[in-house]
Amino acid sequence: MAELSLEELKNLKADKVIDARGMSCPGPLLAVKKSIAEVPSGGVMEVLSSDEGTRRDVPAWAKKMNHSYLGDIEEAGYWRIFVKTR
């Protein structure tokens, strides 16, 4: 699945939001791994992270786990990162 535009991302309703702000690497990614089971198949997970590495780690993780990375939105001091589960 292709990445979404910023406008599409902004209108996206996540099935599960993980707030990992303030966590250092690899905390956010471990939180993602833990929470993914709670997202229904084909659902959207939104990860909030203030760690810059996470916005690159999550797409790499999604690719490995066969989920779809949808893109991210940069906010003040953190990122909103979107993944659609397989």
Partner: peptide
């Protein structure tokens, strides 16, 4: 420890 955590997260 960070590499161990990263590896676990990457399954």
């Amino acid at each position: 420890a960070i590499l161990a955590g990263g590896a676990v997260a990457m399954d």
